[in-house]
């Protein structure tokens, strides 16, 4: 068991899957000679060559479409889009093609692609580099959407995504690439479905995904110091949502906070609250609270950016609210 960075975990998954199956290729902007904007493919061009680590032009919709076409003929492409904001350009091929081809062909064709992309607010990158957009993909039938919160899932979910026969969207986060965590030395696969109880507790459930799990964990530490045992639930997969694990946690704690880095409207929190109401409305002792971004494009100014994006204290305040402590 070694402690490695999130980007190293992604790189290792690429390396192992490329070695395992010649049909696996990686494609994206600057992933080859340059090694990837976040180093997630560094060194692989030298190891596997230009035909398997493909530097693409800045043509997101069509290089994604090329990956999809290749997948229909037996390839296993890992497509990197440098920022989820740029994935808007590839929505036609991702949503109109990859998500629908299996269905509209009556199950006769399939698109086993992986699309990886960072989707979060980093550090003053301003409005056109800071959108999160997970909600757009999680609302699309025919896709799987996962949000690894640390190196183990970043490694093990990418490996599972490559092997899986469905199109999988992996949403990473600029602020997590250097985050470190333990990953087993032996080959490990992490499932693409299933929420995870990251920290067990009895008094309140803090639900997060992607980077917001870390906000929940930090808030749980502060709550513990106040004598509150918070349970932290990482959704892990935004599509499909693990309704059972959410229900079981809410039936235990009876109180819920959902932390999302995105804006609230038609978002992850809205969906999770709907799930809770449908699954276990009468288990609730208080109305659920969403922690979310301000309803604005993300501003450049550092202070304004911080104000727009939720932090651990916001999660703490929300928890105290559902606990009736404010």
């Amino acid at each position: 068991m070694a402690e490695i960075a999130y980007w190293e975990a992604i790189r290792r998954a690429h390396d192992e899957e490329l070695a395992h199956d010649r049909m696996v290729i990686a494609m994206g902007e600057d992933i080859g000679v340059a090694g990837g904007t976040y180093k997630a493919t560094s060194g692989l061009y030298q190891k596997y060559g230009a035909d398997r680590i493909i530097d693409t032009p800045i043509s997101e919709n069509s290089y994604t479409g090329i990956g999809i076409g290749a997948s229909m003929a037996g390839m296993r492409p890992i497509i990197e889009i440098m920022s989820i904001n740029f994935a808007l350009l590839a929505l036609d091929t991702l949503i109109n093609a990859a998500a629908k081809i299996r269905y509209m062909s009556g199950g006769r064709a399939s698109c086993p692609i992986v699309m990886r992309t960072p989707g979060g607010t980093a550090h003053q990158l301003a409005a056109q580099h800071s959108a999160r957009l997970a909600r757009m993909f999680m609302s699309t039938p025919g896709l799987r959407v996962v949000t690894p919160r640390g190196p183990l899932d970043a490694y093990g979910m990418l490996k599972s995504a490559v092997r899986c026969n469905d199109p999988v969207i992996i949403i990473e986060h600029e602020s997590m690439y250097n985050m470190r965590g333990e990953v087993p030395d032996e080959e490990t696969f992490r499932p693409l479905e299933g929420a995870e109880i990251v920290r067990a507790g009895t008094d309140v459930t803090l639900i997060g995904y992607n980077y917001s799990v870390h906000l929940c964990l930090a808030a749980a530490d502060k709550l513990a110091a106040m004598g509150v045992a918070a349970e932290v639930l990482d959704l892990r997969a935004l599509r499909p949502i693990d309704r059972d694990t959410i229900r079981r946690s809410v039936e235990k704690t009876h109180k819920v906070v959902i932390a999302e880095e995105d804006e609230a409207t038609v978002g992850v929190g809205a969906e999770i609250i709907s799930v809770i109401i449908e699954e276990c409305f009468f288990a609730l002792d208080a109305q659920p609270v969403r922690v979310h971004a301000a309803d604005v494009p993300v501003p450049y100014n550092r202070q304004m950016e911080k104000a727009a994006i939720p932090n651990a204290d916001d999660v703490l305040a929300a928890a105290l609210k559902v606990l009736g402590r404010v």
Binding site: N61, S62, Y63, T64, G65, I66, G67, I68, G69, A70, S71, M72, A73, G74, M75, T93, A97
Partner: peptide
């Protein structure tokens, strides 16, 4: 167009 190019890439 891109789907065809992808089939060709394969």
């Amino acid at each position: 167009f891109p789907l065809a190019a992808g089939l060709a890439l394969a």
